[in-house]
């Protein structure tokens, strides 16, 4: 069944939403759109304006950056991943392309709704800071590694 209840269950499994009131998650699920992507279809493209974030309910996707030598797959995303939230938070264009590698079902959360959730649940913003900080740490580590390789 593709019902809201399943979507709420999925949302709860995402660390970011783990501490959010289930009723609010249900609201988030109801007001979000459930979208089906084909394999090789882009969820969004690098450089586009970011108006929404996606929670992957089923399927897998690659995060791809356009480098000088063509497309580079930066990382892969699996079920329960949240993607696209940076564009929403910073109002910047998408920093990468996200492309489905299998058939994929995602929950599309609109910018206003996510921001509103963050405002209403300070825990959510702390959680989000933590996720972003982790990613920053990872990126810094990778950068250091890459620099040291270059030298």
């Amino acid at each position: 069944m593709n019902s809201i209840q399943d979507e709420v269950a999925t949302l709860r499994r995402i660390p970011l939403f783990a501490n959010v009131d289930p009723a609010k998650l249900k609201l988030l699920a109801f007001t979000s759109q459930r979208i089906a992507f084909d394999a090789n279809q882009d969820l969004f493209k690098q450089g586009d304006d970011g108006e929404d974030a996606f929670v992957i309910i089923d399927g897998e996707a690659d995060v791809i950056v356009n480098g000088e030598s063509g497309e580079i797959v930066v990382t892969s995303l699996k079920k329960n991943a949240l993607v696209g939230e940076i564009g929403i938070l910073c109002d910047t264009p998408r920093t990468a392309t996200v492309r489905a590698t299998t058939k994929l079902i995602a929950l599309r959360i609109m910018k206003d709704q996510l921001l509103n959730m963050i405002r209403e649940f300070p825990d959510l913003s702390i959680e989000m800071m933590r996720v972003l900080a982790t990613r920053l740490t990872d990126t810094t580590a990778e950068l250091t590694e890459a620099r040291s390789k270059q030298n």
Partner: peptide, 8 residues
Amino acid sequence: IEPQHRLN
């Protein structure tokens, strides 16, 4: 509409 509202 079931697929839109998804209330099963």
